[in-house]
Design a protein around this nucleic acid. Structure first.
Lengths: 149, 149
DNA sequence: TATTGTTATACTCTATAACTATA
DNA sequence: TATAGTTATAGAGTATAACAATA
């Protein structure tokens, strides 16, 4: 359990995270912003899934996820097929075109990070990644949207 | 210099930061959202300053800063006095009411963090804070808004 | 002419609520 | 009756561009 002043300092750093987020988003293709990119990445990583599952992985409301998915589908980057187990759902899957777009975006992210963090050690990059993952867990375990009414 | 896969993993964690940001913002008073809270915190920490300096500290465009400041001024939480050195500028200063609001917000942030991170060690909280500060520096040193046209 | 700050406009991301179709 | 998903609407945060006042 940390001291109050430690939390206050952490608060300052968390509040200032926007500059990092914008730095990453700046170099994305106009057709695929950060929100949509996250959808592509999750579908690539976890494979075919339903919208509700995707929303859960994104920690975002289904209505938001639905719009991202619609955006990506309109551009022909992912397919929606009927779910044989439940006619209300459709299974979302990245297609070849979507994989290409994702690869492009991933390259852009990596380039931006490699440039910004050129003077970081491997260990520090790893430590930050680990702590961010843990931070997300610590916050994610609280109430999730539309699940604890 | 880290490997590509390390950057990709970091990208995932950075993209998922939204859940943390929303977790912190959820418990703020309706009258003062995160953006305005950041203004209060900076004026408390650095004292009286001009709008342009504030925008620089926030790493955000002056137009954005101007709106936050207008919001806070309307609520009577900060004062704008003529800058004796430049009639185009005004000096912004937190007043007593603003200090109270900031104290309230700071308490809320600390409470939220203490709850979410109750099982974190002091050392890990410190490490995360440090790495986030460094991350911000690494991104902040790039182009800043309205300075590199 | 250049700079400080303001305002109008537009875009992204998000949530809530009302709705349809299916379970 | 409850759940999966969609859509309409609203609000926070941000940037760009046009503008006023002053340097």
């Amino acid at each position: 359990m940390a001291a109050q002043s430690q939390y206050e300092e952490l608060t300052r750093q968390l509040s200032a995270f926007g500059v990092v987020k914008r730095g990453l988003a700046r170099d994305l293709p106009h057709q695929c912003q950060a929100g949509s990119a996250a959808v592509l990445a999750l579908l690539h990583r976890h494979g075919e899934m339903r919208l509700s599952r995707l929303a859960e992985l994104l920690s975002v409301d289904m209505s938001v996820t639905s719009r991202h998915v619609a955006h990506l589908t309109e551009r022909g980057w992912l397919d929606r097929e009927p779910d044989p187990l439940d006619k209300r759902s459709r299974l979302l899957r990245l297609n070849a075109e979507g994989e290409n777009v994702l690869r492009d975006i991933s390259d852009r992210y990596v380039t931006t990070l490699a440039e910004a963090l050129h003077d970081w050690s491997d260990e520090d990059v790893g430590r930050l990644t680990e702590l961010l993952a843990r931070l997300r867990d610590s916050f994610g375990e609280g109430r999730s949207p539309r699940t604890t009414p």
